[in-house]
């Protein structure tokens, strides 16, 4: 479970995240939508402990990320939009390194490697050095690395970048399966189709504020608008509100 309690993050005069409160239940796949600069990445950085909130707190399965960062990170698998991989290692070696960082037993690491090698269709090139991989292959290794230790929480930033449609479908299925098996997933994306197709709940944020939160049906209410239309409408309204509040 992810608990975000009244979190604020300021960068000088700019409030990137403004008193954000959110609770994501165990086994829930939550998608965070928002235009560029809405505060999604800042929120993810605070969730992963890369940034400290100025106010408020974040707990991951009851562990405060600021107070007990190592314990909290042990629960998380993180896939950044531009993942870091060691170019001179092979895919298999990289997963072994990650498994060791999470202090997994060697046999368990090998077992997981076999699982993800097959699930992510990496058999042919898993023993090659990463420097020779395409963008999509690297993204698949990053996925496997985030999941190799079977995390209780997955935080994913733009999961579909560089993936071909076939692998994209496979990834979507994998994320859904993970959530169904009890993994809590926080997904940040611009891809509205992915959000609509996969999410249990969707949150739309802009200028650091949560504009709307709910299941797809709750967001639509009684209208027949698509997620795209809803998204644009909400973001435009929020921009107009901000302009109206600005002193002349």
């Amino acid at each position: 479970m992810i608990q975000i309690n009244n979190v604020t993050k300021r960068f000088g005069p700019l409030t990137a995240v403004d008193a954000l409160s959110l609770s994501i239940n165990q086994g829930e796949l939550f998608s965070c939508l928002g235009p560029n600069g809405a505060g999604k990445t800042t929120t993810i950085k605070m969730l992963t402990g890369l940034m400290a909130p100025d106010e408020g707190s974040i707990t991951l399965n009851g562990v405060d990320i600021q107070k007990e960062p190592v314990a909290a990170k042990r629960l998380v698998g993180y896939i950044p939009d531009v993942p870091f991989l060691y170019n001179k290692l092979t895919g298999e070696e990289f997963l072994t390194v990650v498994g060791n960082l999470y202090e997994m037993p060697g046999t368990e690491i090998q077992k997981q490697i076999i699982v993800y090698r097959e699930q992510l269709d990496m058999e042919d090139w898993f023993e090659q050095q990463i420097e020779g991989y395409s963008r999509g292959m690297k993204q698949r290794v990053a996925f496997a690395a985030a999941m190799v230790h079977e995390p209780e929480i997955l935080i994913i930033d733009e999961p579909m970048v560089g993936l071909d449609p076939r692998t994209g479908r496979r990834m979507k299925q994998l994320m859904r399966d993970k959530a169904n098996n009890g993994t809590t997933i926080f997904l940040s994306t611009h891809n509205l189709n992915v959000a609509e197709e996969l999410s249990d709940r969707i949150g739309i944020i802009n200028r650091g504020k949560l504009l709307s939160l709910g299941t797809m049906a709750e967001l639509r209410q009684d209208s027949n608008e698509s997620l795209e239309e809803l998204f644009i409408q909400l973001v435009d309204e929020s921009a107009e509100d901000t302009l109206a509040k600005k002193p002349v």
Binding site: T48, G49, L50, V70, A71, K73, Y78, F84, L101, E103
Partner: peptide
């Protein structure tokens, strides 16, 4: 360095 960011999101003591 992207590597430091990688380690900072792993359960490694700083």
């Amino acid at each position: 360095s992207p590597e430091v960011t990688f380690f900072m999101t792993s359960p490694i003591s700083h």
